[in-house]
């Protein structure tokens, strides 16, 4: 039963890495995800629970926050939690325990594939992908938008580091789109 081997969203056993000009693209499979949605009347408690989980104030709309465990805003009274899988395999259970019934938690690990772009000059890549105003996209900003017909979360970790989370089933299409933009820009 447990004799299973993990594959990444792109179908390999090792994450993919690509380089073009100053930009690196990494497949980042090692993250646990869980969504949090406040229940009616549980909004305040949910925000506090998220604060306890991520060690920072729950992010406001268009933002992400946290350190090891991070959260980004996904909708009114809704967030996504994200943490390294190796240390936080049970992120879902942990969150569920923390919100004490004041929020609905849903396991989302592997539901989203994650690609990270690193390097100076990410704007030129991103402006070929989505309508985010890159001159104003700062560390801590996070938003959901459409990239090549796919609804994706885009998170600015640092000026030279952006994560893109897309639907897992379309990982190959998304990866191809990101690579195409890198080639077009550099």
């Amino acid at each position: 039963m447990h004799n299973l081997s993990a594959t990444t969203a792109l179908g390999g056993t090792e994450p993919r890495t690509e380089q073009r000009g100053p930009i690196t693209l990494n497949e980042e499979p090692g993250y646990a995800l869980a969504s949090v949605a406040a229940r009616k009347g549980g909004e305040r408690a949910t925000v506090l629970a998220i604060q306890r989980i991520i060690g920072a104030a729950a992010p406001k709309p268009n933002h992400a926050a946290g350190n090891t465990v991070t959260a980004f805003w996904t909708g009114p009274e809704q967030w996504m939690l994200e943490a390294p899988y190796d240390s936080h395999e049970t992120l879902f259970a942990m969150a569920r325990a923390e919100v004490k019934g004041k929020a609905s938690i849903t396991e989302q690990t592997s539901g989203w594939c994650r690609f990270d772009l690193r390097g100076v000059g990410l704007g030129a890549v991103l402006e070929r992908l989505c309508p985010i105003n890159m001159t104003k996209f700062q560390p801590g900003d996070a938003t959901r938008t459409s990239i090549d017909h796919l609804g994706c979360f885009v998170i600015c970790r640092a000026l030279d580091h952006i994560s893109i989370l897309g639907p897992r089933s379309s990982a190959a299409s998304l990866h191809h789109g990101l690579l195409t933009s890198m080639r077009s820009a550099y």
């Binding site: 709309p61 805003w73 996904t74 909708g75 009114p76 938003t143 959901r144 938008t145 609804g151």
Partner: peptide, 17 residues
């Protein structure tokens, strides 16, 4: 109406509002 129209838009690729 030809003029102001009150209508629904669903932010499907965004926050689902």
């Amino acid at each position: 109406p030809a003029g102001p129209h009150i209508e629904l838009w669903y932010h499907e690729q965004g926050d689902r509002s």
